[in-house]
């Protein structure tokens, strides 16, 4: 017994430098914020932009989290995720427009109730659609990346067309509820109310997801499955069921994000899902496929970058995110915090 303990090294704690390096991905967000401050050189503008960037980042995170887990768990790249975003937005808009009395009222409670109902309807619709999508579109092509990309892209096209069929060919204006319009001015800092709500919802989702992944057995299984699905099966769990669950949850989150994004832009189109999907992809790649924390970091980076460059050089806003992605991939070819395999 004694010589057995002798061969085990002391608490495996790598040297300080190594630990700092491992923490480096987490520092990218504050570093980018500082760089933004240096470039903008005006504290109140910077604060406004940073808040806007965080809000945008949170919204993107909501939509990207499901995609990254679906990929991590089953190696499935789902282009149809964009369809869930659009459909969520349209379902949510229908509910909000039907509850015109509530949204036009200046009561914050009624406004929030309307938004909550819209979100619930959107999540239910996209969750259900996600289940259908997984069973019918994705399941037959497990393990074949090329076919997955083609088939889910096809699903996206069909879903976009179905939106046109149901809601008509035109974009729909989606005004924010009364109490969420406008902004507070604190000193010289402009704080848009809706952005604050977006940050709150995004943070809640992130904390909720983290809690579920760390504290619940289901979460443990998902994290274990992302790392080594085969071993999870060998321990007696059906990873397939786990995957359907994550797929449905991810689709519902995309629907939630769609509603929130629609209210952010105050206009929704059938193509919005595909356009946002591009941002979502950038985020997921930056974060490292399969990692929820990486996805969160990536989303904040992209949100901040988009707002800083949108202010400094509006013409290259999206291009700047591509550059960000390229830079991060040059530094870490698998993204900031890739989910460990094996």
């Amino acid at each position: 017994m004694t010589d057995r303990t002798a061969e085990t090294p002391a608490v495996p704690s790598p040297p300080l430098k190594e630990r700092l390096l491992a923490r480096l991905p987490y520092w990218t967000v504050p570093l980018l914020a500082l760089a933004g401050l240096a470039a903008i050189a005006d504290l109140s503008t910077w604060t406004t932009l940073t808040l806007a960037g965080l809000a945008m980042g949170m919204l993107i995170f909501i939509m990207a989290s499901g995609l990254t887990l679906v990929f991590g768990l089953m190696d499935v790249l789902n282009f149809g995720h964009g369809a869930f975003i659009s459909i969520g937005a349209f379902v949510g808009a229908s509910v909000l427009l039907a509850l015109g009395g509530w949204t036009a009222s200046s009561s914050l409670a009624l406004n929030l109730a309307a938004v909550c109902l819209a979100i619930a309807a959107a999540m239910a619709a996209t969750g259900l659609l996600g289940w259908f999508f997984e069973r019918v579109i994705v399941k037959p092509v497990y393990g074949a990346h090329l076919k997955q990309i083609l088939v889910t892209m096809g699903g996206l096209i069909v879903a976009e067309q179905l939106i046109h069929l149901i809601w008509g060919p035109n974009q729909i204006p989606l005004p924010r509820p009364e109490a969420l319009k406008g902004s507070w001015v604190i000193g010289e800092v402009v704080v848009e109310r809706y952005r604050l709500l977006a940050v709150a919802v995004g943070a809640a989702i992130f904390l909720g997801l983290r809690w579920a992944l760390v504290r619940t057995k289901l979460g443990l299984l998902i994290r274990a499955g992302v790392e080594n699905g085969e071993m999870v099966e060998a321990l007696g769990y059906r990873i397939q069921r786990l995957f359907v669950l994550v797929f449905v949850a991810g689709s519902a989150l995309a629907g939630l994000g769609g509603v929130m994004w629609g209210l952010y832009d105050e206009i929704i189109t059938a193509q919005m899902g595909l356009n946002i999907l591009i941002l979502v992809f950038i985020v997921v790649i930056i974060g490292g496929l399969g990692s929820v924390e990486g996805c969160f970091l990536g989303a904040l980076l992209v949100g901040l970058m988009a707002n800083y460059t949108g202010f400094l050089a509006p013409k290259v806003a999206l291009g700047s995110n591509i550059l960000l992605m390229v830079a991060i991939l040059m530094w870490r070819p698998r993204g900031l915090l890739p989910a460990g395999k094996g």
Binding site: H145, N275, L289, I322, M325, L329, P333, R334
Partner: peptide
Amino acid sequence: LFALRVQAIFFAMVTLAVASACLIL
């Protein structure tokens, strides 16, 4: 050359992002 550095599955996503950026540009 860039795609060689990253996972193959990234390629579809990266090209989609690059293409849309160029469209906007």
